[in-house]
């Protein structure tokens, strides 16, 4: 048994806490770092989805040319200017996807403070205390960056960025204070509202930006495929095999992308929900000044193990295929 562990557990025993609580906090700290760390690439998905939506939106009106109408690949706006073209609406795709990219970045900052929290708890478990200064630069730069993005020109997504910015700042304030083993139960209770709020905002963002964009991409792909099928020949007519196979390859490629996005969004939500449940159980186990609630500690262990397993799956199966489903 290391001297640091002895110091920390002695301090906890002195305040009436059990070693089990300290061990559970250590387990949670690993889950927080692993879980939030694995999701960094997930908060680039909305930007990827936006670019894919933009690509299919370019293609959709140009397919009728195959059977002789006026809209064609030669019609304005040409591909070279289409990304910044505003003729169909008030925003170009560059504006729209740029705003989403800024929002993705703001939400990645939320993950950064969760990871910083994991390190802080690890420090308390290992050394008996955490000096707020240790993570000052990481936590405060995440909060400042989010405020800066929120103040920029992320039209339409400014509300989402501001929404995550406030709990990040609250959590950063918490991380800048000293946490000691003697007050660990109380500190975890104090951190819980901001912790839950940061993760709630991340979840809400995945629901709004991820789910809604995936819905649009799925619908647009359906219409693009309908257009191509319409061009391959009338009902009952045999298609040219070369064109038929090219169509099949195109459809299979895009369907694989849709499955990749679906898996990514589902896995991201599960990690976030399990992290929330794990912290809630840890807080509940140490609520008040009485004995530690061992049932809650067991629940925490289950959620933390799920987060670690999900994070490993995410890194191996989803992040590894990022952009190349």
């Amino acid at each position: 048994m290391s001297r640091a562990w002895l110091v920390a557990s002695t301090a906890l025993f002195a305040s009436g806490c059990a070693t089990a609580y300290l061990q559970a906090t250590g387990q949670f700290a690993v889950a927080a770092r692993e879980g939030a760390g694995s999701l960094a690439s997930a908060f680039d998905l909305s930007t990827q989805l936006c670019r894919d939506r933009a690509d299919l939106a370019y293609l959709l009106p140009r397919l009728k040319a195959e059977y002789g109408a006026e809209a064609s690949f030669g019609a304005a706006p040409l591909r070279s200017v289409w990304w910044t073209d505003k003729s169909g609406g008030t925003n170009s795709w560059a504006d729209h996807c740029g705003a989403i990219e800024a929002a993705d970045g703001a939400h990645r900052n939320g993950l950064q403070v969760i990871i910083a929290y994991g390190w802080a708890l690890q420090s308390v478990v290992g050394q008996g205390q955490f000096q707020g200064d240790d993570l000052r630069s990481v936590a405060s730069s995440a909060a400042q960056l989010t405020q800066k993005i929120g103040g920029g020109g992320a039209a339409g997504y400014t509300g989402a960025i501001a929404g995550v910015g406030t709990p990040i700042t609250m959590f950063t304030d918490f991380l800048l204070s000293k946490i000691v083993a003697n007050d660990l139960r109380k500190d975890i209770g104090a951190a819980d509202p901001a912790f839950q709020k940061v993760l709630d905002k991340l979840l809400a963002y995945v629901d709004a930006s991820g789910e809604l964009q995936l819905l649009d991409l799925t619908e647009t792909l359906g219409e693009v495929l309908d257009e191509i099928e319409g061009g391959l020949g009338a009902k009952g007519a045999l298609a040219d095999p070369v064109r038929g196979i090219a169509y099949y390859d195109f459809a299979a490629h895009w369907e694989a992308r849709l499955r990749y996005y679906r898996h990514s969004i589902d896995a991201t939500k599960k990690v976030i929900q399990d992290l929330k449940a794990a912290h809630n159980a840890l807080r509940s186990a140490g609520d008040g000044d009485g004995a530690i609630r061992t049932d809650d500690l067991k629940k925490m262990g289950g959620f933390a193990a799920a987060v670690i397993a999900d994070a490993a799956y995410f890194r191996a199966q989803i992040a590894a295929s990022l952009g190349t489903p």
């Binding site: 169909g88 609406g89 795709w93």
Partner: peptide
């Protein structure tokens, strides 16, 4: 007729932009 079809395709583009606006809106 060709112009009508082109206009219809343009209207579909505008619907796509409207979808974009709704996704981005609070």
């Amino acid at each position: 007729g060709a112009q009508t079809l082109t206009d219809l395709i343009h209207k579909r583009e505008q619907v796509t932009h409207a979808i974009q606006d709704v996704i981005a809106a609070d």
